[in-house]
Amino acid sequence: MEHYSMNLTLKVWKQQNASAEGNFETYQVKDISSEMSFLEMFDVLNEQLIHDGKEPIAFDHDCREGICGMCSMYINGRPHGPWHGTTTCQLHMRAFKDGDTVVVEPWRANAFPVVKDLVVDRSSFDRIIQAGGYVSVNTGVSIDGNAIPIEKDNADKAFAAAACIGCGACVAACKNSSAMLFVSAKVSHLALLPQGNTERKNRVMNMVSQMDKEGFGSCTFTEACEAVCPKEISITNISRLNGEYAKASLASDKQ
């Protein structure tokens, strides 16, 4: 792997707090190594800003290994930047070349209000899980783990759906700001397993209802969510949610 260094122009969204008007600020960064991660490049910029007596840019990040789902930058017109199946923290600077201009914006959706600069509030996702994204078992069950064999294919599909990191890139990419990929991943994870079967009807109805309340849009299968998902969650999960929802709501006998 050839390593190189580069100078970049960054245009970054700055917004003091939730109620402030924001605007783009332009920064120059120099001698960025192609081996750095994108967030390490931001570290360099922030150190430079602090050195110059300015306020650093606030951005969400934590594990920096692509699993916590905290990082959330919309880079050059794409959530998490140009690489496929990658979170912002795993994006490395060899994706860019000397002289590039990089525009960085926060996730944009009414349901994800900006908290500061590039930080957004994704608590709506937690409330959707609260609406039913679980199996209602208390601690202390006594059924042996191997008592319920699960077809490997279904277990694998459930795992693939459960791999969602809740970063919100799907919402950020969707022209409708729809959270359907996120919601459907959870619905699928649990609907594909016998453990989730008992509550599957209420789960899907309640989670969709909460999703609508939070102000997310509806799905029109544009597939943008799947294309930007860092965990490559399949859009087929949305189809599964739709089927689950139709079955559950039509079977419901509430008048």
């Binding site: 078992v137 069950v141 059924i143 453990q195």
Partner: peptide
């Protein structure tokens, strides 16, 4: 046992 009951998709 607890995690399986919660729907943790172990291999």
């Amino acid at each position: 046992d607890q995690c399986v009951a919660q729907g943790v998709p172990f291999a």
